[in-house]
Amino acid sequence: MSTSPSPAVPVLNIANVLTVVRILLVPFFVWFLLLDDARGGLFRWLAILTFVVAIYTDKLDGDLARSRGLITDFGKIADPIADKLLIGSALVLLSVLGELWWWVTVVILVRELGITLLRFAVIRYGVMPASRGGKLKTVVQTLAIFLFLLPLEALGTWAWLVGAAVMGAAVVITLVTGADYVVQAIRLRARSRA
């Protein structure tokens, strides 16, 4: 009894469309945050709303891709890039506005850029999808950025301390998962050569 091969998943599907929407939301987020200029006014709240919507598309596109079998190589590559664009722009802008230490932004961005370059370097051996640790890293970074986007000074010292603690956890998880991706890349290369 022969089995026919399963049909290829089209690149143009709802999960990938949501990933592209997330990429397109980044300039609006940046624009709103720059217009606010650390004043905590309407544009700040529009930036927060745009960030939340963009992050929700990340969860939604992942859920849809898994539940409907819409996982594609494009999605495996574009999804983490969309996350990095959103998170990277948020970190840089928060540092430019003087609301986040530059060393935090530099550490996270260097790790993100390094892992993205590593993914492209090993793509001929296979695609490295996001790991559970990588997903946890994204969740914690997102929460930390969300807390820093809130007008923390108006909310009081406790809010700033919570935000700083979550951002510290994000930095630690970012570094640990970065090391894990390096190990994955080495194993992927070794397996393909064997």
Rank of each mutant, 00 (worst) to 15 (best):
T3D: 13
L12P: 01
V21I: 15
I23K: 05
L24E: 15
L24G: 06
L25E: 14
V30R: 08
W31T: 15
L35N: 13
R44Y: 03
L46K: 12
I48C: 08
T50K: 12
I55W: 10
D58P: 09
K59N: 11
D63L: 14
L64I: 15
L64G: 06
S67F: 02
I71T: 11
D73G: 01
K76R: 14
A78F: 09
D79I: 04
P80R: 09
I81N: 07
S89Q: 13
S89N: 10
L93I: 13
L94C: 03
W102I: 04
W103A: 06
I108H: 03
L109W: 03
R111A: 07
L113Y: 05
L117W: 00
V122A: 10
Y125D: 12
M128F: 00
P129A: 14
A130L: 02
G133D: 02
G134Y: 08
K137G: 14
T138Y: 04
V140W: 05
V140E: 07
Q141V: 12
L143G: 11
A144H: 04
L147W: 08
L147F: 10
L150P: 15
L155R: 01
L155M: 01
L155F: 01
V162G: 10
G163P: 01
M167N: 00
A169G: 11
V171M: 08
I173F: 09
V183T: 03
Q184C: 08
